[in-house]
Simulated assay, not measured.
Amino acid sequence: MRLTVYLAGEIHSSWREEIKKKSLALNLPVDFVGPMENHDRSDNIGEEILGEQPSAIFKDAAASSFNNLRTSVLMEKSDLVIALFGEQYKQWNTAMDASAALANHKPLIVIRPEKLHHPLKELSQKANATVETCDQAIKALSYIFE
């Protein structure tokens, strides 16, 4: 059995590479997908497809349409979602993706540091599992294959 895992969360640190590298080291039969990690491409995709927009608001709206399309397709095809809530960046997209996973009945592992326990308590109660580190998420993922 092979699983596709959607990695939801901020795109500014190397947490996805850590998850991928550790999964590969354990020979887990997993393929990973996720949001567009090239921030400039993500911000500009609307204008790349539709042409120049009249204002920053329209530019963001156009980009959001295509980013949401991409996320919807990849999440729909995934078997599991891992959503990382870090401390450094705003987490709105992560919260949206985690909520979409729940709404679409996708199994969800939430990674969040202890200090974010309180603001994420309701989400954690709905997730299938909540952990504090990428290592713990890998152990949870690995357990599926035992």
Rank of each mutant, 00 (worst) to 15 (best):
H118K: 12
P107N: 07
V110M: 06
L80N: 02
K115Q: 14
K59I: 02
P113F: 03
E114C: 07
K20V: 15
Y89F: 13
H105Y: 11
L116E: 11
A100Q: 15
K20P: 01
M96P: 11
A95N: 11
L120P: 01
I19Q: 00
V110F: 01
L116R: 12
N93W: 10
K121A: 10
E37T: 06
Q53N: 04
E122M: 10
G46Y: 03
L28N: 01
S42M: 13
E52W: 08
P113G: 07
Q91T: 14
L123F: 04
E37H: 06
P54K: 03
N38A: 05
N27Q: 05
L108A: 06
M36T: 15
R70C: 09
V30F: 02
G86Q: 09
H117W: 09
S65W: 10
L28M: 01
Q53H: 05
T71M: 10
E114R: 14
I111R: 05
S64M: 07
I45L: 06
K59C: 04
K121F: 09
Q88M: 08
K22F: 04
R41P: 05
E52C: 07
S72T: 14
L123W: 04
N104P: 08
I109P: 00
Q53E: 08
L50K: 05
P35L: 09
A61S: 11
N68H: 11
E48V: 10
Q91Y: 09
N67F: 10
P113L: 04
L102D: 05
L120Q: 01
A103S: 11
F66W: 14
N44M: 15
L102G: 04
A61T: 09
V110G: 04
S42D: 09
P29M: 01
I82E: 04
L74W: 12
P113D: 06
F85E: 00
A98S: 09
R112D: 06
S23T: 00
F85V: 00
A56M: 06
L69V: 09
G34I: 00
T94S: 06
P107D: 07
I109K: 05
I82Q: 05
K115M: 11
A98M: 08
